[in-house]
């Protein structure tokens, strides 16, 4: 599963500050009777790059989806950028516009061109004039290396290109935190690398990132912390070196042996 990352990573901007970006305390969530997230406690500082791993159904996607309230938590507290997530819609929209998210299936808007996908939210949420929004969009499309596709529709692009557009679309909102929900799971192996490269560049600029992913190579190279989840709980977290070379819990050892074993 792991992709080799050839180039040297520039760590000069990858600094973790003391400022807290996300604080999750005693968070619980149920789907009906099913206790999907159990007593989650997690503090993310600005500049951290966290990879969340775990078997399917362990609640890792649900957890990061709680951070921008695509899922609602039932107990505990989530504070993002100093704003607590409650049912107050104003707060939710505020946090959502500060927190970018990339999905497994990209979720680009198929009826809009690539450029329109990128300018829509800045224009309608941030009220930025069209010209300026388009300039920003082109800047980020250049960054993800697809400026020449700007006037095509998402359906005409490859999966890897679509995911990079999705990243650019999130970046156009100038988010302070980026969430990635299995961004490479729906991609062909050839395309995984181009998406990971984009994510690495983002990390190099000091973006606060939470990534649910199975790309352990990426975790080793980029993350400053790896979290392992199972059965809705955080089972183990550590620096990547320690996590991979010296896992403490039996469950983690088993998971790593399965995911790295082939």
């Amino acid at each position: 599963m792991s992709q080799a990352i050839e180039r040297e990573i520039d760590r000069s901007h990858m600094t973790v500050s003391d400022e807290v970006a996300i604080q999750i305390s005693n968070m619980n969530k149920w789907y009906g009777e099913f206790h999907v997230l159990r007593d989650i406690n997690l503090t993310v500082n600005r500049g951290e790059r966290i990879v969340i791993a775990g078997p399917s159904g362990s609640g890792k996607s649900t957890m990061i989806r709680c951070i921008n309230r695509l899922e609602e938590h039932q107990q505990g507290k989530i504070i993002v950028d100093g704003t607590e997530l409650t049912s107050d819609l104003k707060n939710i929209d505020k946090i959502r516009s500060e927190v970018g998210m990339c999905f497994q299936h990209f979720n680009l808007f198929p009826h809009l061109t690539i450029l329109e996908n990128c300018t829509l939210a800045p224009m309608w949420v941030r009220k930025i004039p069209k010209r300026e929004a388009e300039e920003t969009a082109m800047h980020f499309l250049e960054k993800v290396k697809i400026p020449d596709q700007a006037h095509k529709y998402p359906g005409m692009l490859s999966g890897g290109q679509q995911q990079r557009v999705a990243i650019a679309r999130s970046l156009c909102m100038k988010p302070r935190i980026m969430l990635f929900d299995e961004p490479t799971s729906a991609l062909d192996p050839e395309m995984i690398k181009e998406v990971l490269d984009t994510m690495i560049e983002l990390a190099e600029e000091g973006m606060t990132m939470l990534c649910v992913t199975h790309e352990m190579g990426f975790a080793r190279q980029v993350a400053n912390r790896v979290i392992f989840m199972d059965q809705g709980q955080i089972v183990e977290q550590n620096e990547p070196e320690e996590f991979f070379n010296n896992p403490k819990s039996e469950r983690t050892k088993l998971f790593l042996s399965q995911i790295l074993g082939h």
């Binding site: 695509l70 959502r96 998210m101 979720n107 808007f109 949420v125």
Partner: peptide, 27 residues
């Protein structure tokens, strides 16, 4: 419409009416 379209619109911070008008209804 796939659920992902609603989620993407939500995740970008569009409110209900804007999401309906710009993303959901056109499709």
């Amino acid at each position: 419409l796939p659920k992902g379209q609603y989620e993407a619109a939500d995740a970008l911070g569009l409110d209900y009416w804007k999401a309906q008008r710009l993303i959901i209804m056109p499709q």
